[in-house]
Design a protein around this nucleic acid. Structure first.
Length: 276
DNA sequence: AGGGAAACCCGAACGC
DNA sequence: TGCGTTCGGGTTTCCC
């Protein structure tokens, strides 16, 4: 659920100290409490503990849906998956029900990885590329241009919905932003990628970027009971709007399942011509 | 190569 | 009210 805009929002607030007035940049990790060992992807919980304490947080960023922290010796990565969150809390705050890993920092604050559904993971690696190496390009990066994107689409004959959600194809889109971007591009989620014209490819890339930028501008979306403070959920055109009216043409929004994922679209705006 | 399904989880929503 | 059941969602893994 946390997709690129939500992860970007979290990374920025940790870095800037927005909301807490406490930036983690330059802070030393004095100690770590591991409350759920399986949240640690790599290395073992024991080695994780031994290696991470005493390191300084030098940088905080995002790659795809990963939060990437460069420490003095290692890279510390977080993937929030479905229900994870990463927050700064006063050291005195009692441990929460869903706290999984707690990093005790200098300055009376703690960095808390919480995750109700336990799908999220934390990595401690010598080199972040060990985990990030397979990711596709960043959709908002200048290094991805329309020609390149068109060639990527041409190289596959998959349905657009699962292709755009494939993190090795493009890094950062999830179920929500994919549905919204396809609506904005007026493309059917079952359209086959190599049947798109170069014009369609350019429109799709533009739609993806506008959707992600709008999500970031609104601090992401707060969906289900996982609240993060963003309000992009109020801008959804199709996601979660099955049975409601399309904001553009008034047609009833439909929901189908594609690759086991709920997929929402407007049958009028998102023509099936490209797949029939 | 690409699609389908199961597994990992648990809170919420739903049915009775 | 309270119980049991179903659902959803990101990713990996396995099977066809």
């Amino acid at each position: 659920m946390p997709e690129l805009p939500e992860v970007e929002t979290i990374a920025r607030s940790l870095s800037q100290g927005r909301g807490t007035g406490f930036s983690i940049l330059g802070k030393v990790i004095n100690d770590v409490t591991i409350l759920w060992k399986r949240s640690i992807a790599v290395p073992s919980a024991e080695e994780f503990y031994q290696r991470v304490h005493g390191q300084t947080i030098c940088d905080v960023g995002r790659r795809g849906k990963y939060i990437v922290m460069q420490l003095s010796d290692d890279a510390l990565l977080f993937h929030l998956r479905m229900s994870g969150d990463l927050t700064i809390q006063p050291a005195s705050r009692p441990t929460g029900k869903h706290d999984r890993v707690i990093f005790h920092l200098e300055g009376e604050h703690k960095l808390v990885f919480e995750d109700a559904r336990k799908f999220g993971r934390v990595w401690l690696l010598r080199d972040a590329q060990e985990e990030l190496g397979e990711l596709g390009p960043e959709p908002l990066s200048d290094t991805l241009d329309e020609d390149h994107f068109f060639r990527m689409l041409q190289a596959s004959k998959r349905q657009l919905k699962p292709l755009l959600m494939d993190q090795t194809f493009l890094a950062g889109l999830g179920n929500i932003y994919t549905d919204e971007a396809l609506f904005k591009a007026r493309l059917h989620p079952l359209s086959i990628s190599n049947q798109l014209s170069s014009q369609h490819a350019a429109i799709l890339l533009q739609a993806i970027r506008e959707t992600l930028h709008e999500g970031i501008r609104r601090d992401g979306a707060s969906i289900d009971w996982v609240y993060r403070g963003g309000n992009f959920q109020n801008q959804f055109c199709v996601y979660g709007r099955k049975g409601k009216a399309c904001p553009v043409c008034g047609t009833t929004i439909e929901r189908i399942v594609v690759g086991q994922r709920g997929t929402h679209y407007c049958p009028t705006c998102q023509s099936k011509s490209a797949i029939s």
